[in-house]
Nucleic acid binder design. Sequence first.
DNA 1: GTCTATAAATGGATAGAC
DNA 2: GTCTATCCATTTATAGAC
Lengths: 217, 217
Amino acid sequence: MAGKVKTRDRILKTALALFNQEGEHQVSTVDIAAVMGISPGNLYYHFKGKEVIIEALYDDFEEEMRQVLSAPIKRALDIEDNWVFVYILFEEINDFRFFYYGLASVLERCPNLRPRFARLLKLKQETVDAVLTSLAKAGLVAFGPGEQAALATRLAAHLTFWLQYRDLTAPAQTGKNSGRAIINDGVYSTMIQIAPYIISHREPYAALLAEYFKKQG
Amino acid sequence: MAGKVKTRDRILKTALALFNQEGEHQVSTVDIAAVMGISPGNLYYHFKGKEVIIEALYDDFEEEMRQVLSAPIKRALDIEDNWVFVYILFEEINDFRFFYYGLASVLERCPNLRPRFARLLKLKQETVDAVLTSLAKAGLVAFGPGEQAALATRLAAHLTFWLQYRDLTAPAQTGKNSGRAIINDGVYSTMIQIAPYIISHREPYAALLAEYFKKQG
DNA sequence: GTCTATAAATGGATAGAC
DNA sequence: GTCTATCCATTTATAGAC
């Protein structure tokens, strides 16, 4: 009764897991049904097709992402808070990584997701920009003309393409907690891009970076 | 006789054009044959399948790319030379843009292209690093510890993902010379990332950037 | 080298019984 | 809500005639 999970939700959960594992366009609706042990017809009763499933998953993703991105708006973050913030951001992206690995495929299949994804990218960029502004106001960082906007743009792009980049440069780790390693690398490669602009407490920041780097080694 | 283009080459040329226009996985072998006005059977006589076509195209791309990337090794470049260098790099990428737009799809279909693409990315990064070294030696730029390597890495990634990023942020321009605009934006967004590290001739560089920006407006 | 015809395989989708 | 059975469309791939 109360513990019984609805088939609709099980479909979404299974689809997400399979998409993340194999890539969206390698997984058919029949595959999803087969893994769940239900019939394709049953699956089609709940979702008219694969597009609808993907869009439903995107709804979930966008909602969670917007929530995460609202954190720095609510209150200013110090450097360590930002560390955690970026970590959570990457965790969220990693949870729905099939969007990021197969971006082109997904947007081809679901063209109406394109403007939504673009808007989310813009929101990332604006959020990062706001964070940088608050860091600058706190006197921790300083930017030359245009540098802050450029950095915000770059970091938003970095968030978006990091998984693809990492997949290309590092061997595809199939290990247990390889997800952790990928996230850690992502956080590190993000934070190090801020380093050149730091004007006070440079040493603690460098130490933090070094320690973080050691932990993931 | 001498003017007669071999069918094999026409297939490659047509496939490349279609892939770039519509995206690789939207174009079937039948489509290619139809556009050329030959039969699918004939196409299969020349290429065993789509993979083989894609790999042949990648052979061409890699060869040209390696040639372009060898330029800065042969002789040191000044700032203006580098401008041209980056422009040619983006032109080359744009000529085979279907690899970059649908990277995940392509690598799923042709897994043996993955290590080759990864090696090419590494070569880009090493080349950029060499260019930065020569600029630093000429006293035009200066880097803190680790900054040069980080910048080289970022620029190589930028070259690789620029098309995807631009496609997401800017409306898909179907105009005549939209390719030019995309390339110009790519060059600009690359060169501006070097700006923070310039220590001499800052003004001429800024002027160059501004002028370039005006041209593409 | 090139064609026609057709096979084989897949993935998306629906109808109707239970 | 769920299943079985089936159909349709697309794409890849091959056989054999010209």
